[in-house]
Design a protein around this nucleic acid. Sequence first.
DNA 1: ACGAGTAGCTTAACCGGATAAGCAGGCCGT
DNA 2: ACGGCCTGCTTATCCGGTTAAGCTACTCGT
Lengths: 349, 349
Amino acid sequence: MARRVTIADIAAAAGVSKGAVSYALNGRPGVSEATRTKILAIAAEMGFVPNRAARSLSVSSAQTVGIALRRPARTIGIEPYFMELISGIEATLSGGSFGLTLQIVGTVQEELEVYRRWWAERRVDGVFLCDLGTSDLRLDFVADLGLPAVAVGGPVEGARFPAVWHDDVEPSRDILEYLYTLGHRRVARIAGIPGLLHTAIRDEACAETAAGLDFESATMVHSDYTGEQGAQITRRLLSSANRPTAIVYDNDVMAVAGLGVAHELGLEIPEQLSLVAWDDSPLCRLTHPALTSLTRDIPAYGAKCAEVLLTLIGAAEASAPPGPEARAFSVQCKPAQLSPRGSTGPALV
Amino acid sequence: MARRVTIADIAAAAGVSKGAVSYALNGRPGVSEATRTKILAIAAEMGFVPNRAARSLSVSSAQTVGIALRRPARTIGIEPYFMELISGIEATLSGGSFGLTLQIVGTVQEELEVYRRWWAERRVDGVFLCDLGTSDLRLDFVADLGLPAVAVGGPVEGARFPAVWHDDVEPSRDILEYLYTLGHRRVARIAGIPGLLHTAIRDEACAETAAGLDFESATMVHSDYTGEQGAQITRRLLSSANRPTAIVYDNDVMAVAGLGVAHELGLEIPEQLSLVAWDDSPLCRLTHPALTSLTRDIPAYGAKCAEVLLTLIGAAEASAPPGPEARAFSVQCKPAQLSPRGSTGPALV
DNA sequence: ACGAGTAGCTTAACCGGATAAGCAGGCCGT
DNA sequence: ACGGCCTGCTTATCCGGTTAAGCTACTCGT
C-alpha cells in the first residue's frame, strides 16, 4: 500500500520549510526560481497530490460542485437527458480540477435539506438547479444561503444568480407551423409536468401559435414524462372520435412509447399519424421510423452550465456577495432545432 | 446570507470547551448526561452541521465514495443501466450520510489516474469498479493503493476485494432453451464489448448451451452496445441467406434498435422474428411489441454494492488492511429472470 | 483521615495545507 | 559607513474538527 506524500515530506527532502514548499507549489512569490524548480521537481518525483480536506479547510473552498436530481429511483435512468447533462458538466469540470457530487432526492424538502447540508458542511462551492418550477422555492432558498448556483433552465425572473437556458417559444412555433404546413389540422401535444417552468412556457407558446393558425383542434394533455403515461394518453387520444393526425411529445421517452402504441393500433407512420419528440437523444434514431425531434446539444448545454457556475464561484471567491451583475452571466443557448425524420409526413385527410 | 456554526460557537453558548462539545456530539463518554443534553439542544437550535473538511482532516476519512464511468459522453445517457445503478447506490448511501462523487472518463489510463488522485487527495473512502474486463488492470491497481473497492460484476478470481455479481450462465441457458422450445433453430446473439467480463461469460455459456441443443445455426457477433451497431448488425443478420428467426441482444438499447430494423424491413414480430433483450429497463416496455427481457433489479443491485462498500470501508477503518476475508463479502445476487413479452413467439418454419 | 480511583471537564496537540508576520542577509543610495 | 529596502526564507498561526493527556473535585474504601 502506497504512502501519501505531504508538503512536510517535500520540505524535508528539499531542506526547506513547509511554507516555502507551499509558496513554490502555488506559484506565489516568496521563493527564488532555483528553489521553486527544485521543489517542484521533488514534488513531482514523490508524486505529491495535496490533501483535499486540508486545502479545503484552509481556503474555505471545496473544489466541488453539486447536483441534486429529484426523480423517482426507478424512472431516472430512462431519460437520457440527465446523464448527457452530467457528462457535459464533467467535461468542463475535469479541466478545472473540480469534482462533482451527485445526490438523488425524492422531494423538494429533501432537496432543500441537501443544499443546506452541503452549504453548512462546505461540501460544495456551488450547485446546479435542475427542473425549474414556475415558482421555485429553491431559488430564494439557495440565494439566501449564499450558495452559488446556476439555474439549468429559464428564463428566471429577478433571480439572484445566472440561468443557462434555451428559448422554447421559437421551437414551439416551428413545430406547429411545420405540422400545419404538412397539412395537419388536428394536432395534440402530450406535455410534461405542469409545474415545470419549461412546460408552462411551451404550453403558452403552443397555445398562442395554435390560435394563430386555423387548426381544427389543438389538444394539450399534461403527463409525468413516463413512458407509461405517454402510451396511455396516446392510446386515449387515438381512440377519440376526431383523433389527431399529429402528436407532439414533450420528451423522447413518451414519443417512443407513443410510437409503440401507434404500432399496436396498426397505424402507418407517418401516413396515418405524425409524431414529434421534444429533446432529441440517440433514442429517437433507434426506432423505425426514426422520430422527428427538436434537437438540442445537451452535453454542450451541461458544459456551458458548468462554465457559468465556475465563473460564478470564481467571482464569489474574489469579491463579496454575488451582486446583481450575476444576471449578466445568464446565457441563452441556441434554441432547439427541428430535425425532420421519418415519423412526420403530410397529413392524408 | 446565513452564517455557519462551528463547535466553538456551541462551546461558547453552552459555556463549555470545544472538546466537551465534540464528545457530546459524537456520543462519546467524557461528559455528563445533563451537559450532553444541553449541548445537543444548543447545537440543534443553532443548526450546527460539522464542516466536512475539518472532520475529514482529523479522522482521515472523506465520508464519500466515488464512481468513475468510462463511456463516451454522447452515448452514456442512452443506457438506463448506469443511472439506475447510481440511484440504487444513492439509496443506501443517503442513509449513512455518505456522499457520492462521480467522474466520467475516456480511457482506462484516465480512470486509473482518477483513482490515484482520489486516493492521494483522500477525496473518497472507496470506489465502485464498473464494466469489469476479462483481465482488468484496475483490480490490482486499486488494491495496491489500498483503496477500498467493490467490483460491480464478477465473479472475480482471486480479487483482493469483494464483488457483487449475478450469475449469467443460468440466464444464458434459460434464454436459449426458451427459444429452442419455441421452435427456433437459427438463433443469433448480438453480444457486448468483447473485453468485458460478463460478455465473455455469456459468450461461453451461450456457446456451451447451444452446443447441447441441435440448433441449425447459433451465431454470435460482438458490438459496442450502441444502437447504431445494434441496428447495423441486425440488418446484416436479417439480410443473410439463412437468416435467424430469433435474435438475443446483450442490452436493451440494441434490442430496441433491432426492433426498429425489423419494422423497417417489414417483418412481423414475433411471427417472423423473435427478439430478446438482456438487461430489462422501462425502455423494453415502451415498444410494440414489448421486448422479452432478462430482468434484473438494477437499483437493488446498486444498493447492494453500496452496502458492501460501506461495510468494507467500516472494516478498513476498524482494522488494518482488508485481508483475504474480503472475498467472503462477495455477494451473488439473484440471476436475471426471463420476462416473456410480445417480442418472442413460436418459430413459424 | 487519607490516598486511590473516577467522573467530568479543560487544555493542547494534531490532521495538512495556506498565509501573515518576522527575520536574516545582500544591495542600494548617499 | 550606515539606514532603508528588497529578496528569500522561516516561524507561527489559522481553518474546524478529533482526541490524548492533564487537571480538579468528588466518592469511596480502609
